[in-house]
Simulated scan of single mutants.
Amino acid sequence: MLTSGRVVFTDMEEVHYGKPAAQSVAEVVTAHGAERVFLMVSGTLNRETDEIEKVRRALGNKCVGTFDKMPAHSPRSAVIAAAAQAREARADLIVTLGGGSITDAAKAVQLCLANDIATVEGLDKVRNADVKAPTVRQVSIPTTLSAGEFSGIAGVTNEATRVKELFRHPLTIPQAVILDPEVTRHTPMWLFLSTGIRAVDHCVEGVCSNESTEFTNASALHGLSMLARGLPKVKADPSDMKARLDCQIGSWLSMGGLAAGVPMGASHGIGYVLGAVFDVPHGHTSCIMLPSVMRWNKSANADRQALIANAMGQPGKDAGDVLDEFIRGLGMPRSLSEVKIGKEHFDRIATQAMGTPWVPRNPRKIDGPAQVKEILELAA
C-alpha cells in the first residue's frame, strides 16, 4: 500500500553559516532593505564581550536600539518591555544574538508590534489563530543549540500561572539565521552541551514520531549523527570551531521534522512543565527525560529506536541506553533528583504535561496523568 503524508515548508528565506556573524548580518540587512534594526541580545555578551559591538559597528547608523534584559524562559513582562522599546525605536527589523529565550521572545515581540499589544494581559489576544501577521521580521544569530530559531513557535512563560504558553504564526519564524561558531565560544560549556542534547531530542522524537516522514527522517538522522560526533569533540577541545559548526548544522537539521509539522513527544511535553514550573534549563529537561521516555516508548516503536542507535554509531544497542551513556559522558544531569525535583511534585507535573501539545501525540499513547507518572518514575 502506498504511504501518504504532507511536508510543510516554512517562511524562512536563508541560512548563513561559517562566516563572521557581523559580516553576515550586514549582508542580510542590506539585502532586505532594512533601515531601522533593533537588537535583542544576551546581556552577558553585551557587557562582557565585544560580539554585540561588532554587530553594531557592522550596522552603523541602522542600529536604533538594544534590549539586553531577557530572563530565561521568556517571561511575558520582559516580552512587553522589549516590544515597547522596539515600538519606540520604530524598528523595521529585529536581530537577535543569544540563546533560545531571546529568540523566542523576539518572535512574540513581532506579534506584539503587529497587533498593538502593550500589556502582559494583552498577550492573551495573540494566542488565537486570528492575529495580524508580523510585518517587522527577525534575523537570529544563536549562541546555543536549542534550535528554536528554526521554528515559528515561541514559548513564553506566563508568570501568573507559571505555565509556558505557545505563540505561533508562520511569519514569526526568522527570515534568516546566521550560524557563526565563533560567537558560541562565550557560551558556558554546560549550556552549549545541554542545548546540544535539546537538539538531539528534536532529532530523536522527530524520527520516533508516528507522524514522521522520509524527508524529515533524513534530516533528523543526519543531524543526530553530526551532533553525536560533534558534542564530545567540543567538550574535549572547546577551541575546535569545526566541531562547533558541525553541532550548529546538526542543530539546524534537528528541526527539519518540527518545522515540517512532525509533532514531538513526551520528552518535550514534560520538559515544558519542568522549565516553566521549576525553572529547569531547556537543555537539562531533555538530558533528564529523553532516555526514560525512550524506554517507556520502546514497546511501541522499537524499529524507530533502532535507527537512533545506528545514527549514534551504536547499531544493535538499546537506544535508551545509548542516549543515557552519551548524556552522562557529557557530564549532564540524568535524573529529576539531580535538579531537586522530588516525587511529591509528580502529580502536578503529570497533570500539567497532559495539557501540552506534545504529550497527547507521544508515539506510545498516553491516556492520562498516571502514564506520565510512570515516565517520571523512570527518571526519578
Score class of each variant (00 low, 15 high):
G5H: 07
T10H: 05
V15R: 12
Q23P: 00
V28E: 12
V28P: 02
V28N: 08
G33D: 06
F38A: 03
S42D: 03
S42F: 12
G43I: 10
R47G: 01
T49I: 08
P71R: 14
P75D: 02
S77N: 10
A83V: 02
A84G: 11
A86Q: 07
A86K: 07
R87L: 06
A89W: 06
A91R: 04
T103L: 05
A105T: 03
L111N: 03
D116F: 08
I117K: 04
V126E: 02
V126M: 13
R127N: 03
A129M: 12
S151E: 03
G152R: 11
E159K: 08
A160W: 10
H169C: 08
L171F: 15
I173R: 08
L179K: 11
M189C: 04
A199E: 01
G206I: 01
N210A: 14
E211Q: 11
T213H: 14
E214A: 11
L221K: 03
H222L: 12
S225L: 04
M226L: 15
L231A: 05
D237E: 10
M241Y: 15
R244N: 01
C247N: 02
Q248H: 13
G256D: 03
A259Y: 14
A266K: 03
G271Q: 08
Y272F: 09
L274W: 07
V280Q: 03
M289D: 00
S292D: 01
R295Q: 14
K298W: 11
S299I: 11
A302T: 09
I308A: 04
M312T: 01
G313W: 12
K317V: 01
D318G: 05
A319G: 05
A319W: 15
D321L: 09
D324Q: 13
I327D: 00
R348A: 12
I349V: 13
Q352T: 10
P357K: 08
D367T: 10
A370H: 10
V372P: 01
